[in-house]
Design a protein around this nucleic acid. Structure first.
Lengths: 256, 256
DNA sequence: TTTATTGTTCCGATATATGGAACATCGTAT
DNA sequence: ATACGATGTTCCATATATCGGAACAATAAA
């Protein structure tokens, strides 16, 4: 993995800054990544010249705003996000709970968009964050419907008995065209997810997250229908488009 | 400015990809940035190894999802965004028009967060985008209250008469603690902005944007009050915090 | 004050990026 | 089918940008 190269090192520094909550000092980064101070200094100077990192008032380095524009640009060029956004928002308002969209990118599942619910206690996934395969609703959906789009790491179940149980669960997911996750990933958090498709291809998972306690007081079947309907609508609109990436107007007219 | 360096070249490639709506080919990038094909190839390979760029199905390069995580990380570590977000959302729902937050970063004004209105016709600024100084409500606020936080480029007015007019307008902004922009930047778009402060320091501008036609049918004074109130609330909450960057929980409790 | 740690600059040695050229691949027009 | 142009990819000798130790400056801590 240690193909030493300038760009690789620079991005490693970038990700290190990203992981740290507070700003970092040069020596600190050098120690963490095993790069001499002077090199870190030069890397940061280059990155700062383009706004990818910044120095805060204390002289410590943090990720820069240039990254913001680049990152959000990625979202803007995802047709599925454009299509799903208003649907997620409406569903979140209707149900009062957080809805989000997950899709496989580079073999990993990532949250592409979210619309938070209104509850005092509510799920707040981070856009751009990765979610695990085995213990999430979106993950099960992918394992059941499009495992090839996930990198194979740790997809292998531990024992034979587990393997059978997993395969059984996945078959159920395929039958229902829907996946649940109740407290498996995060205690107290339940999620339902339904597939967004283009033809046979799985493009993403539209998910509804709510506290498990809140789920107990609701009609699970109705939630399933709502999520399925939202996912289906997303699929339809996505397929309705001619699919030449629609550019985004500064003042879009949004017939929702 | 053309201090040739590997990192600089790589980020130039990144920004070039960002600007292009569709994916780019290697030769194309090389021509645009005046870099030989083979170098572009190598740069892209390095960037791709870290997920900063990706190849789409057609083999063309686009910005990668790694940028998404990095970019949104920038937002998450801005306390002012954390604080302003729910306030923006509520204001947008109340008024039915788009609200957004602008702040100076690295001498430039940028949209840090937004909450879109519900109108068929509505403003839809892009988070991360830059806004000009002279012809926007947020820009006027900064020019009047904290010009030192803007890079001085093109802040100088053209003629003496204009200079006086500008100074007069800025004085009014200072008196009202509020700035308007009616059709000055984008025809048909009007914006009111009020300052978010910490002590004397200007931290950002909370703005309300609506079609000028819609503004004509509303009580401008009431909008001013709403925006001022929202900005004041943001300031208060921001000052209420001890201001050690509050980390964000996966399941935050949000007492709004 | 001293001491320790950090940020910054300098510079020779060397590894690394460079870019021209040749090759491979594709799509298009002849 | 063939020729053509453009593109993505690989190779390699050369030049140069990166490396990293060391010395220095600027802090903060003792």
């Amino acid at each position: 993995m240690d193909q030493t190269g300038t760009i690789e090192k620079a991005t490693d520094v970038l990700f290190h800054l990203h992981r740290q909550a507070a700003g970092c000092g040069i020596s600190e980064i050098g120690r963490a990544l095993d790069i001499p101070k002077s090199s870190v200094h030069r890397l940061l100077a280059a990155l700062a010249s383009r706004g990818l990192v910044e120095k805060d008032e204390a002289g410590r380095y943090r990720p820069g705003i240039a990254l913001l524009a680049l990152g959000l640009g990625v979202l803007e060029r995802e047709p599925i996000v454009q299509v799903a956004r208003p649907i997620l928002e409406r569903l979140a308002v209707t149900l009062g709970e957080t809805c989000f969209l997950v899709a496989a990118r580079a073999g990993r599942l990532r949250v592409l968009e979210k619309a938070e619910g209104t509850g005092f206690l509510r799920a707040a996934p981070q856009v751009g964050a990765e979610v695990p395969h085995q213990v999430t609703a979106a993950g099960k959906l992918y394992l059941a419907l499009a495992p090839e789009s996930l990198s194979a790491t740790d997809n292998a179940p531990q024992s034979r008995a587990e393997g059978i149980a997993v395969e059984r669960a996945l078959r159920q997911v395929r039958e229902q065209d829907l996946a649940w996750n109740r407290d498996e990933w995060i205690a107290g958090l339940s999620v339902v997810a339904a597939p967004v498709r283009m033809g046979e291809r799985l493009l993403g998972a539209l998910a509804l997250a709510l506290p498990s306690a809140a789920l107990a007081e609701r009609d699970g079947g109705e939630l399933e229908q709502q999520v399925k309907a939202a996912a289906a609508k997303t699929s339809d609109r996505l397929n309705g488009l001619g699919l030449p990436h629609s550019s985004v107007d500064p003042l879009p007219i949004d017939p929702r």
